[in-house]
């Protein structure tokens, strides 16, 4: 464990909690892509099946359980409790265009052709694109609530910190996982445009709105 991985995980946790609190406090999931949240729930479920097969540390196990629990709680709030506020018309990204190619890629390119390993690979590939329905929704409506942008910023920060973590691990532990690194870099690139808008608009006190 190094400081970059730890702060990355905490930033990820902060993002998840910010989103849950936003929905809970405003009693509304307006502007939130339920499809992205379902994808994240699938990501955590398929990746953390190793909870049943291997123990790494108390930290590792508890974070996995918290991530999975929060992901399903978020999906529950969006599709059940506050369903009336869910903006389904604007959440029109076709997720099958992500899930099907990602599934195929996981079967073709993996470290080991075994059931758990393919599911792990699938989750890594899927996570790298799971935010696209959310970004698509923002580009469609042309705006995002400030709290939603804080959520996205924490998620993007988590990815950026993981890249620093991999550089660290490469130099100091001779560790690298090419699948995780390539997918992680792709995922981080997807946030670049958003980072630019966040710094130039949200941090200057303006609402994030895109030119028509």
């Amino acid at each position: 464990m190094n400081i970059f991985r730890l702060t990355g995980d905490l930033s990820h946790l902060a993002a998840i909690i910010i989103l849950l609190l936003k929905i809970w406090k405003t009693r509304s999931c307006a502007g939130i892509s339920g499809k992205s949240q379902i994808l994240f729930a699938i990501v955590f479920t398929t990746r953390y099946l190793d909870l049943l097969s291997s123990f790494i540390s108390l930290y590792n196990t508890s974070m996995k359980v918290i991530y999975i629990g929060c992901a399903y709680a978020t999906v529950y709030l969006i599709y059940m409790k506050f369903r009336a506020t869910y903006d389904g018309n604007h959440d029109s990204f076709r997720v099958e265009f992500l899930v099907v190619p990602v599934g195929g890629l996981a079967v073709l390119i993996n470290h080991d052709f075994s059931f758990l390993e393919i599911l792990w690979t699938f989750s890594i590939y899927l996570e790298s694109v799971a935010i696209l329905p959310q970004l698509f929704m923002i580009s469609k409506t042309g705006e995002a609530e400030t709290i939603t942008t804080h959520y996205l910023f924490c998620l993007g920060l988590y990815r950026a910190l993981y890249i620093v973590n991999w550089i660290w691990r490469y130099y100091f532990e001779a560790f690298f996982d090419l699948i995780a690194i390539v997918a992680g870099v792709v995922q981080t690139i997807l946030y670049c445009d958003f980072f630019y808008l966040y710094v130039t608009k949200v941090l200057k006190g303006k609402k994030l709105s895109l030119p028509a």
Binding site: R47, I56, N60, D112, W120, Y162, F176, L178
Partner: peptide, 10 residues
Amino acid sequence: WQRQTLHDEL
């Protein structure tokens, strides 16, 4: 590269 079967990252 080194094959990873135990994934210690989240």
